[in-house]
Design a protein around this nucleic acid. Sequence first.
DNA 1: CCGGATCCGGGTTGATACTG
DNA 2: CAGTATCAACCCGGATCCGG
Lengths: 133, 133
Amino acid sequence: MSQGNTGVTVQAVNAHACPVREVLDRVAGKWSVQILVAAAHGPIRFTELERGIEGISRRMLTLTLRNLERDGLVTRTVHPTVPPKVEYELTPVAHELHDTLQRLTDWAERNRVYVAEARAAYDAEHRPESLDA
Amino acid sequence: MSQGNTGVTVQAVNAHACPVREVLDRVAGKWSVQILVAAAHGPIRFTELERGIEGISRRMLTLTLRNLERDGLVTRTVHPTVPPKVEYELTPVAHELHDTLQRLTDWAERNRVYVAEARAAYDAEHRPESLDA
DNA sequence: CCGGATCCGGGTTGATACTG
DNA sequence: CAGTATCAACCCGGATCCGG
């Protein structure tokens, strides 16, 4: 448990800087946000998440879920039925975060093309991938 | 320039998922946000940033600045003076982002202790680091 | 003062196989 | 169904040296 493979987040030791990084580090994981979004509608099962996120591995799903649970963003409920059944649900705090995340989404939506164009222009200028000749 | 060390961002190929990840990937870099914050007040010089962020290396500062510029979030202005002088400034779009980021900060501030406690509780429960005995 | 280039370690992710 | 364990690969980030 010391050779780097225990968590999914980045939040190393730089949270001291500013609270912005603190929250970003918490959701900076590759899948955290998607899980938060997927579970926003209500309780959802492990397999449901796995099939709904498309591209995530069992390992990453478990790991990310663990961290989310650790931070008090999701609750884990085990139903001791014959075929095991575990449901994950967002906590109120997580719902607040999800709400805030949507504002970021708005920004992304609004400026998506702007950024894409800026990037294309920059690449055309600095990355001689295809010049006119 | 081919063995992985060309950029600072994460934005690999998973931006297709949702716009949330798209924006998060863009600022998920370890220093992006801090630079955005530091430059929010107005034009700022390279060295100013370097000394103001505390802990960032020249390399990372340059790299992050490049990506920010590439995405159209900052502008780079070179003053051909005797000692070179380069100033960076946020674009309007970046200012919007910065504004949105502050909402996230609010969330972080409000729930900082909650998360910390949740984490402590979880660790105490699942990580036998120090039991009562 | 500003920045590029290379070397190199460490953390995070992914694939796969195994278990209750 | 829900997870865990191991192995390997990849990318990010830091240190340092060199150039304008």
